[in-house]
Simulated assay, not measured.
Amino acid sequence: MSTLRRWIPNQHGAWAMLAVPSLAGVLVGSPSWLPTPPLPRAVARPLRRLPHGAADTAPARLPHPPRAAARHRRPALVFTAAALALGPPLLLAAPWPALAAAAAAPFLAVNVLHARRNRERALANGLVAVVPARGMLLVAPRAGGGAPAGGLAPALACLLSSAGTVPYVKTMIRERNSEAYRRGSVAYRAAALAAAALLDPWLAAPFALRLARAAVLPGRGLRVPVVGAVEVGCSLPLLGFLTGVYG
């Protein structure tokens, strides 16, 4: 199990955060044989420790976490090799994913820097990590034959939602005793709710659910798997509303 955690996030909430943008992009756009170009994702996934991942939980119990470079070396090499093997044929068929990879590169560089310094759990690193993942909502519609602009509004909504998950998870795990984090998390969720309602009034429903979660759940002593399960439960309504509003 410890080996598996080096390769993929070991929390269900991280899976939801990775899957929702791509699924929403495919459902909002038109499915095709190339729904989620793997070039930017394959390289980024092993290095981009999302806030629900093992780096946010297990190392907290270790006085001396494993050296970052050693911990990430094998997954990084394998995923990079896969990207190099699969990337050229895909780029020959559709060159535009190279632009998506280039756009994701600066964010990946920040995540790699934090990983090398063993600071994957930093708030800034988590916030930076969600941006390229939400960008899949721009890539997937284009892969289906549509225009990237068609995914702009749902991508922004998804980014507003996911950015708030980063401090919220802190209030549930590492910063569970911090009143400042809790207030900041709730304040952000309130602002995100207002912004989402401006994008589309229907989006107020899933954002209100997340605001209620940020206000009520911290301090309840929920176990980490429960925190991840709640994230999955909140992600499904968001996916449904994004698909219903923009599909």
Rank of each mutant, 00 (worst) to 15 (best):
residue 117 R to H: 15
residue 224 V to M: 05
residue 118 N to P: 01
residue 113 L to I: 02
residue 129 A to E: 13
residue 203 L to V: 08
residue 222 L to Q: 03
residue 195 A to G: 09
residue 162 S to T: 10
residue 152 L to V: 07
residue 212 A to K: 03
residue 157 A to D: 10
residue 212 A to E: 04
residue 155 A to D: 12
residue 148 P to W: 14
residue 121 R to V: 11
residue 179 E to A: 15
residue 171 T to H: 12
residue 227 V to E: 13
residue 200 D to E: 07
residue 140 A to P: 10
residue 220 R to V: 00
residue 176 R to M: 00
residue 197 A to K: 05
residue 213 R to M: 06
residue 204 A to E: 01
residue 193 L to Y: 05
residue 150 G to H: 05
residue 224 V to I: 03
residue 113 L to C: 03
residue 167 P to V: 00
residue 171 T to Y: 03
residue 207 F to V: 08
residue 184 G to L: 10
residue 172 M to N: 00
residue 181 Y to M: 08
residue 149 A to Y: 00
residue 147 A to D: 14
residue 174 R to D: 14
residue 144 G to Y: 00
residue 185 S to Q: 03
residue 138 L to C: 11
residue 119 R to P: 00
residue 122 A to F: 03
residue 193 L to N: 03
residue 150 G to Y: 04
residue 188 Y to D: 06
residue 221 G to Q: 12
residue 112 V to Y: 06
residue 139 V to N: 05
residue 126 G to Q: 09
residue 115 A to Q: 10
residue 187 A to H: 10
residue 117 R to Q: 15
residue 209 L to C: 08
residue 123 L to K: 04
residue 174 R to T: 14
residue 150 G to N: 02
residue 226 V to F: 04
residue 123 L to A: 07
residue 126 G to P: 02
residue 116 R to W: 10
residue 112 V to T: 12
residue 109 A to Q: 09
residue 105 A to I: 00
residue 151 G to V: 10
residue 184 G to F: 12
residue 162 S to M: 13
residue 205 A to P: 02
residue 216 V to T: 03
residue 128 V to E: 07
residue 148 P to E: 05
residue 115 A to K: 02
residue 141 P to F: 08
residue 114 H to Q: 08
residue 186 V to S: 05
residue 175 E to W: 10
residue 129 A to H: 06
residue 120 E to F: 08
residue 164 G to C: 13
residue 168 Y to L: 13
residue 204 A to K: 09
residue 146 G to V: 01
residue 171 T to E: 06
residue 127 L to N: 07
residue 179 E to V: 15
residue 139 V to E: 14
residue 169 V to I: 15
residue 166 V to I: 07
residue 165 T to E: 15
residue 117 R to E: 13
residue 183 R to M: 13
residue 167 P to Q: 00
residue 175 E to M: 11
residue 225 P to L: 04
residue 145 G to D: 10
residue 113 L to Q: 12
residue 173 I to N: 10
residue 136 M to C: 07
residue 105 A to H: 00
residue 175 E to Y: 01
residue 157 A to F: 07
residue 160 L to N: 05
residue 116 R to N: 02
residue 183 R to D: 05
residue 157 A to W: 06
residue 197 A to F: 03
